[in-house]
């Protein structure tokens, strides 16, 4: 892996439906540590599939993909990799409704070696960072859409990941709330020095990134 790169992808291919759908058709990509990357493209272009490959939620059929010095084509325990290196922010916040905000943020730490007190401390620290410490004991169903997404961001950062993968994090929010979330993500990206890879449809959102990748038919068409 070249020095300074946290993600290296070469000729990555992923098919669905026995090869009839080529979701990724030879992706080549290098992302530097601490970079903020936006991935744009129409629906079905393969941008979310690419995000899932980087996050080790799925495996490719061909090519190579190395993330944080781990070869994801060879690694058997991908859950440990996800737990330690990746933080996901989804379009839908995907919080567990019957747990409190604090408990939701603590969930990724169950695979760590922290005791319950340390878990609580770290979760509260993150809730403080996203401005929701006072809502720690609240049920997520009682929060607004923006607040829920802030909780999801806190959950994504709680294990000190090296990469945050955000799949249209403002897609389900109004533009004003979306801007607040984007600013928060960008601030945390700078403060926590994590690599941020964000899939978006919105050109103005993409422009906030250091680099914009345009994906079409499973290939990167341009990088600017």
């Amino acid at each position: 892996m070249s020095e300074g790169n946290i993600i290296e992808i070469h000729n990555l291919k992923k098919n669905y439906d026995k090869g009839s759908i080529k979701a990724l058709n030879g992706i080549d990509l290098e992302i530097k540590k601490g970079e903020f990357i936006s991935i744009m493209g129409p629906s079905g272009s393969g941008k979310s599939t690419l995000l899932n490959m980087i996050g080790a939620l799925d495996r490719a059929e061909e090519g190579s993909i190395k993330v944080a010095d781990i070869d994801l084509m060879k690694e058997t325990d991908l859950s440990e990799f996800r737990s330690q290196e990746i933080g996901f922010v989804f379009q839908m916040h995907n919080l567990i409704p019957n747990l409190t905000v604090l408990e939701n943020v603590e969930i990724p730490m169950y695979e760590s070696n922290l005791n319950s007190e340390q878990m609580r401390e770290r979760a509260l620290e993150l809730l403080e960072a996203v401005g929701l410490r006072e809502k720690a004991e609240t049920n997520p169903t009682k929060l607004s859409g923006g607040e829920r997404q802030r909780v999801a961001i806190a959950r994504a950062l709680v294990n000190h990941p090296s990469i945050i993968l955000a799949d249209e994090p403002t897609g389900a929010l109004d533009s004003k709330t979306g801007d607040v979330i984007l600013k928060l993500l960008k601030d945390l990206h700078s403060k926590e020095k994590v690599t941020l890879v964000m899939v978006t449809h919105e050109p103005y959102v993409a422009k906030m990134a250091d680099r914009i990748l345009n994906v079409l038919d499973g290939k990167i068409k341009s990088s600017s």
Binding site: G55, L57, D77, S79, E80, F81, R82, S83, Q84, I86, F88, F90, N94, I96, I107, P108, Y110, E111, R155, N159
Partner: peptide
């Protein structure tokens, strides 16, 4: 929800 648990690293 189980998908989310897997995504955050649950074995």
């Amino acid at each position: 929800e189980i998908g989310v648990l897997k995504a955050v690293g649950w074995k």
